[in-house]
Amino acid sequence: MNDYLVRIITENGAVRALACITTSLVNEACQRQGCWPTAGVALGRGLSAGALMGALLKTDQRIALSFEGNGPLKKILVEADANGALRGYVRVPAVHMEKPDGTFDVAAALGHAGLLTVTKDLRLKEPYKGIVPLATSEIGEDLALYLTESEQTPSAIGLGVFVEPDNSVSAAGGFLIQALPPGDDAIIDKLMHRLEALPSLTAMLKEGTTPEQLIERLFEGIPYTTLEKRELAFVCACSRPRIEKVLISLGKDELEDMLEKQGHTEVTCEFCQVRYAFDRDDLKRLLTEITG
Rank of each mutant, 00 (worst) to 15 (best):
G221K: 10
D257N: 12
R91V: 11
T226Q: 14
K229D: 01
L18V: 01
E228Y: 00
T209S: 14
K129L: 09
L176A: 00
F162S: 11
Q152F: 06
E141V: 13
I76P: 00
A94K: 15
T136F: 08
R242G: 13
E220C: 04
K75N: 08
F234I: 02
G54C: 01
C30V: 11
G69S: 08
C269T: 04
E289D: 12
E151Y: 05
I243H: 06
P127H: 03
K229M: 07
R242V: 13
K125Q: 03
G84T: 01
N70Q: 04
C272E: 03
L180V: 04
S155R: 02
V26L: 08
A64M: 11
Q152H: 06
R240D: 06
Q273H: 10
L176I: 00
L250S: 07
G34K: 08
H96Y: 13
E244N: 09
R280L: 06
T10G: 01
R217Q: 15
R62D: 11
S249G: 11
V267W: 07
G160Y: 09
I8P: 00
E68F: 01
V132G: 04
E126G: 03
N2R: 13
A80R: 05
G140L: 08
M192D: 13
K129F: 01
I243A: 09
V15Y: 01
A85Y: 11
P241D: 13
I248D: 10
N27Q: 12
A29Q: 07
L116E: 05
G71R: 07
A172K: 06
A29L: 10
L201G: 13
A172C: 12
S155C: 06
R217M: 12
D81S: 03
A64S: 14
R240T: 12
K284N: 12
A172T: 07
F162P: 00
Q178F: 00
E141G: 09
L143C: 02
L191E: 02
C20I: 01
R217H: 12
T22M: 14
R285L: 08
L227E: 04
L201D: 11
M53I: 05
T210Y: 13
A82M: 05
V6T: 05
D142G: 10
L287Q: 03
K284R: 14
V15K: 00
V246E: 14
D257E: 14
S200Y: 10
D81F: 05
E254F: 07
S249W: 11
Q178M: 00
T22P: 14
G160M: 10
T209Q: 15
L56S: 12
V41S: 10
Q262A: 14
E28D: 13
R32F: 04
C30F: 02
E98K: 04
L259C: 04
A171F: 15
E164D: 15
T288E: 14
V118I: 06
A29G: 04
G40C: 11
L18E: 02
L259K: 04
K261H: 13
S137M: 08
G111S: 07
N70I: 02
L250H: 02
D282Q: 00
P181I: 03
S168R: 15
D121V: 07
T268D: 03
A42V: 09
L247G: 01
L47E: 11
L201N: 12
A17G: 08
L247I: 09
